[in-house]
Design a binder for these strands. Structure first.
Length: 278
DNA sequence: CCAATTGTTATTTA
DNA sequence: ATAAATAACAATTG
């Protein structure tokens, strides 16, 4: 499920519950796949007694920085989520990691197990964090950088290109469809076929979708919503892309759902044409 | 049993 | 050699 803003939503959930608090216990359950390679004894020893100093999210990656030079990373994969539970919470089948504090249990659960826990013990920020591409909402995400990237990936459908994290960090399947729908660009168009005007539109809508998603889902600049998606407007493609017989919220036309670039893709044929807009 | 799933990566193909 | 397509990863649900 989780893309850019949803990842930040989950990160804030843990952050609100545990910032400046001390971890009193670390539990793992059936976690070999998700913790892969992390020495479990050191992981538990370093985190137990550590205080949460700061957290951040970038792309689909979360970073929790603890005292004692401990850095915990979480990637939610396809089906992961973070919850905050009571201190005596008994973990269930798919709860792979649980951190206890005096007042809460922080739980990472992931039924499908595509998620990952990362861990780093050291003074410096871990390289798996620093190597993440500059955010789409940052100044570094320029129209020139997008144009250059599209040129190099010119033979791939634009939908597939938008999912490439090295240039579009945090964009996942639904955000890619949302961007293309707002941009009125057909998902099967080859990246190299976009006109300069279309590339400018695409760049702008990437920024818009990221900004709006962070605001409505992750509560940027305000309250964190009680649930994921609680404040997403009906005017977004988001609510209509999975329902059979779904209608385009702008044109009312029937939406199309088909595999493009290896992923189920939804678009509005009334807005998004195969030939470039002139 | 078959197909589906909002992600990433290794392998294969072009 | 590079980029695109595909398979694989795992579990669950319809």
């Amino acid at each position: 499920m989780p893309e850019l803003a949803e990842v930040d939503f989950f990160r804030k959930r843990w952050d609100q519950a545990a910032l400046h608090q001390t971890i009193t216990g670390v539990h793992t359950h059936d976690a070999k796949k998700i913790l892969r390679g992390i020495p479990l004894a050191e992981f538990k020893r370093v985190l137990t007694g550590a205080r949460l100093l700061h957290s951040a999210a970038a792309a689909k990656q979360m970073l929790f920085h603890f005292s004692g030079d401990a850095w915990l990373g979480i990637h939610l994969g396809m089906s992961g989520e973070l919850t905050v539970q009571p201190p005596d919470f008994v973990t269930r089948k798919h709860d792979h990691l649980a951190l206890r504090t005096a007042q809460h249990t922080l739980v990472f659960s992931d039924p499908r197990m595509f998620g990952r826990v990362l861990f780093h013990h050291g003074k410096e920020e871990p390289e798996w964090w620093t190597k993440i591409a500059p955010a789409i909402t940052s100044k570094a995400f320029t129209v020139e950088a997008v144009a250059d990237f599209l040129r190099r990936r010119g033979r791939a459908p634009i939908k597939a290109v938008l999912l490439m994290q090295e240039r579009f960090p945090g964009i996942g399947n639904w955000m890619a469809d949302e961007v293309l729908w707002r941009s009125a660009i057909h998902p099967k168009r080859l990246a190299g076929s976009l006109t300069p005007a279309e590339i400018r539109t695409l760049h702008r809508e990437c920024k818009n979708v990221c900004r709006l998603a962070l605001k409505t889902i992750a509560g940027e600049g305000g309250y964190l919503p009680p649930d994921l998606n609680a404040h997403i407007p009906q005017s977004w493609l988001f609510w209509h892309r999975w329902e059979d017989g779904g209608k385009c919220p702008r044109t009312g036309a029937k939406l199309i759902r088909e595999e493009v670039g290896g992923r189920t893709t939804c678009w509005s044929p009334a807005r998004q044409k195969l030939s470039a807009k002139k």
